[in-house]
Amino acid sequence: MKLTHLVAAITCALSFSAQALTYTQVALPTLNTNIETWSNGIAYDPYFPGAQTLGGIPFVLQQDRQGDKAFASGILTMDVDIADASTVYTLISTGWGLEGATVGSISFRSNGGSWHTVNLVEGDNVRDHYYGNFVNTTTASYVTQSVLGTNTEDTAHLDMQAFALPSIFHTEGLDRIVFVGFGNENHAPLNPNALDLRGVPFLAGVTVAAVPEPNSILMLLGGLGMLGVMIRRRTDA
């Protein structure tokens, strides 16, 4: 085998390994909110239900028989059991919201029992789904704004968060995702006649990215190298 051929084979192997990144769309076990009824929410109607690629990531957007399209407030537990997990992509936005308010959290548990939790903070990694009188910006570098909809006044949108998991999740796998929303879209905790203006977070989609084990890639490259040596010896003989 010529050196150029071997280099080409290794390049192909590396290209294959780069493409081996897999995406698992997670079905939300419960939907309880029809975001189409929220401000300018009619913009969501053409996308639910269905498979959509948003911000370059595949999502499955759901809708139940009651017309609910997302989960808002309360606790939502998703058992996933995904090996080699590296990043969790979410579609989380809020209704209303006060700058700097912690409105919920999202937690990840490995198969070995390790936890990683990220708070959902208005103006940091979440914002109002409607570009209007509340929080319209985010500062976290892992947020991609308006992967659905537009980032202009008086319009609705969905943002995407890319939560990078600690390395332990690549080793142990991702067992569970837990979404927690503190706010309530009907009443504030201290004022039963007012909306919870801290912000009401809702979750509309989850996708988990996983990468192949490095050992698998090294074994593939090693095998190609040995094959090249064997062919070279036969050619020299």
Rank of each mutant, 00 (worst) to 15 (best):
E185N: 11
L174S: 03
V178F: 07
L224Y: 06
S93V: 05
T155H: 15
F108E: 04
S114M: 05
F163D: 14
L203T: 07
L190Q: 12
T138Q: 06
P46D: 10
L3W: 08
F108Q: 05
K2D: 15
A188K: 02
W96Q: 13
A18L: 13
L61V: 03
N40L: 03
G149D: 09
S146E: 05
A72W: 00
I217L: 12
A51Q: 14
G55F: 05
S110K: 01
M226R: 01
N193D: 13
N40W: 01
G132W: 01
H116K: 08
L31V: 07
R234V: 06
R176M: 12
L21F: 05
E36F: 02
T138V: 15
Y89M: 09
I57L: 03
N151T: 05
A164C: 02
L91N: 04
T11C: 08
D124L: 09
G183S: 07
M219W: 11
G225I: 14
Y23W: 11
T11I: 07
A20P: 03
F71D: 01
P58S: 10
T77P: 00
H116Y: 15
L98G: 14
R176P: 00
A13V: 00
M226L: 15
Y142F: 15
G183T: 05
L54P: 02
P29L: 09
M78D: 07
G100W: 02
F202D: 01
M160L: 12
F59R: 01
A164Q: 13
I92C: 05
N133K: 05
T235A: 15
T33I: 00
L120P: 01
Q63Y: 04
P29G: 09
Q145A: 14
V200G: 03
Q19R: 13
T207P: 06
M226W: 07
N184R: 03
A204V: 00
A210Q: 06
G113E: 02
S110L: 02
I10L: 15
T207G: 12
L91I: 07
V88Y: 05
G50E: 11
G100C: 04
T137V: 09
N215E: 15
E153M: 12
N215Q: 14
E185Y: 12
L14M: 13
I231Q: 12
